[in-house]
Every structure is written in C-alpha cells, then in structure tokens.
C-alpha cells in the first residue's frame, strides 16, 4: 500500500507539474512509469504490467479511455490528453519492454482448478495457449494478480464493458472462487 500511495503521490505531482506548463505533456514513458514502471513492470498490484503487452491492445485501450468506452479515474483524464501518434508510440514502447515475474506465490490446487476453467471456457482461443495474447487480445500471462482479479470482477459486474460483450459473456458465470482460481493459474504463467 505504501508503494501505491507513493505512486499516486508521484503521479499527482507529475500531473500538477504538467498542468502548470504551457504545453502539458503526459506522452512520455516516464509519466506512465510512475504507476506502470518505466520499463512497464508495475510496482503495485493495482496497476497492470504493460511490459510485453501487445501494442495493438495497449493502443486500443488508451483510445477507449480517451473516448469514454473504458473509464478509470486516473487513466481517463490522462488518455484524453493524448493524440493518436502519442498513444501508438507509448504502446510501442511498452510492448517492447521485457516483462519481469510478479511477486506472488500461487496455490497449486487453485492454479490447477483455474487451468481447467480456462480450458473449458476456451480462453486460449483468443488469448492463446499460456495466455500470451495476440493482436488486440491482451497478454495476461504474468499480469498482476490484483489487477487480473479486478478486471474479471469488473467484467462480471459490467463495470468494464469495452469488450463488446465478449468478456462480459464469458465472466458472467464465474463464481468468486472461479475468479480466484484463475488468478492463481495466470500467476503461474510467464
């Protein structure tokens, strides 16, 4: 939590600084790196790792934040300031970073149950085997467990709806235990 607070604090001061400039800029990896890590490896579980993520996915998510299809109190105002080329450049930068293992000890029983859920639900058809992602479908392997848990919960509750009904449909039948098992399974992937 300390790290989270620190990140928030840094971001706030960073944005404040930008706001005071004549030409405010949030278009640098350093700005994003306050929460996500300049190398795309997030210092805190609530912020997703961006390292190694598909550039196409990153760009489309930024675009959705900018245009209001995805909402987050931190990301939405930042994305609104970004131009298309800036979003594409940021997406390219973070997609080219090397992901580092997350600090999380997965429970083997839960991870095995999570794998079965993933296979039955055909997750690999889009996310590919090992959840490495492709094109606009995100890489989930090695993602922050807290973030994965929140996204699945948000899809299920329809708090996140920029998936055009796909993930909301798949998550609709997941129980809390299912989500936890998936979190543990995904944490075992790299």
């Amino acid at each position: 939590m300390k790290k989270v607070l620190l990140a928030f604090s840094l971001l706030t001061s960073s944005l404040t600084g930008f706001a005071e400039d004549a030409a405010p800029s949030v278009n640098t990896p350093e700005t994003c790196g306050v929460c996500h890590g300049v190398d795309g490896n997030s210092p805190a579980g609530v912020f997703p790792n961006l390292a190694g993520q598909n550039a196409r996915y990153l760009y489309l998510q930024l675009k959705d934040f900018k245009e209001g299809r995805r909402n987050d109190p931190l990301m939405s105002p930042i994305a609104k300031q970004l131009e298309k080329k800036e979003m594409q450049a940021l997406a390219k930068h973070f997609s080219e970073q090397k992901p580092k293992p997350v600090k999380f000890t997965a429970d083997n029983t839960k991870a095995a149950a999570g794998k079965k859920i993933a296979d039955d639900a055909l997750c690999p058809m889009c996310h590919l085997g090992g959840f490495v992602g492709q094109n606009e479908i995100p890489r989930v392997a090695g993602q922050q467990p807290d973030y994965v848990r929140k996204q699945l919960t948000d899809f299920r509750a329809r708090n996140r709806t920029n998936d055009a009904g796909n993930m909301t449909a798949y998550s609709a039948s997941l129980t809390d235990d299912d989500i936890e098992n998936l979190v543990h399974y995904i944490a075992t992937l790299d």
Binding site: D64, L122, E136, T161, N162, D163, A164, G165, N166, A169
Partner: peptide, 23 residues
C-alpha cells in the same frame, strides 16, 4: 450462443456476446 448488450466499441471486436463450445 450467449448475448450481451454492447455498444459499438470503436473498431474492436464486436460480438455482443460469445459462442461457446460444449465442454
């Protein structure tokens, strides 16, 4: 065949639900 309400997602995959095979 599963349906979910879904507004136009801005050039992303737009299925408005999901197709699932029978486990």
């Amino acid at each position: 065949y599963h349906v979910e309400a879904a507004a136009y997602p801005g050039g992303k995959l737009w299925l408005g639900g999901a197709f699932k095979t029978i486990p």
